[in-house]
Design a protein around this nucleic acid. Structure first.
Length: 200
DNA sequence: AAACGGATGGGCT
DNA sequence: GCCCATCCGTTTG
């Protein structure tokens, strides 16, 4: 679509080292690019959620375990987990090593490889491709991405938005979706008025 | 338009 | 055994 055969530039080295809430906001408008043998898929991040150390909904809130180990590693790495036995959710690790915080990527606006996304998802309309954390993992083909993958090096890269893209605009803040513990915290962020988010 | 239930498996009280 | 950072098809108002 707009960015066919675009060249993507990874975000700068220090990008993920800001506070987790700052990173969750700064990720809006950035592009998530997945390179695979089948081809390249990419989408613009339009919705995120922050998970903090002293936050009962955060997987790391009760200390390090085998599952959440990547959350305690360096910032800018991946943490993907199985949810409801069927789907996986992709997170970007933030904060200094050992803190245990991350940002969940909840929705993308698909911008490249829509046919491949549709094939992987088994659905028709573009709106259904990446409008949820489980959906975008399938669309990008990253369910088996190893935890701790460096998101500035690939095969999955967080990239700067290209010059063709419009300004991100205002950020809306709400409570997070699908959690029961610490559900009142205002830690969900999305581009206001954007039609590609998972839910209003 | 909203509510509901089934699929499906690992983690942890 | 129960709890999930979900999705989708079906049912109900």
């Amino acid at each position: 679509m707009r960015l066919h055969k675009a060249r993507y530039r990874p975000v700068p080295a220090g990008f993920f080292s800001a506070g987790t809430v700052s990173v969750a906001r700064a990720l809006l408008g950035k592009v998530l690019v997945s390179q695979s043998p089948e081809g390249r898929t990419a989408g613009r991040i339009v919705e995120t959620e922050a998970y903090l150390r002293d936050d009962a909904a955060c997987h790391a809130s009760r200390g390090e375990t085998k599952r959440n180990r990547a959350m305690f590693g360096p910032a800018g790495r991946s943490y993907t987990y199985l949810i409801y036995g069927m789907y996986r959710c992709f997170n970007v690790v933030t904060g200094p090593k050992g803190l245990g915080e991350a940002v969940l990527i909840r929705a993308l606006e698909p911008i490249e490889g829509l046919d491949l996304m549709a094939h992987r998802r088994g659905v028709a309309g573009p709106k259904a491709l990446c409008s949820g954390p489980g959906k975008l993992v399938i669309a990008l083909g990253i369910a088996d991405l190893p935890d701790g993958s460096d998101l500035r090096k690939g095969p999955l890269v967080v990239a700067e938005d290209g010059p063709e893209m419009r300004e991100p605009g205002k950020i809306a803040v709400t409570t997070r979706i699908g959690i029961s513990k610490d559900a009142h915290l205002p830690l969900r962020f999305y581009l206001e008025g954007n039609s590609w988010i998972s839910r209003k």
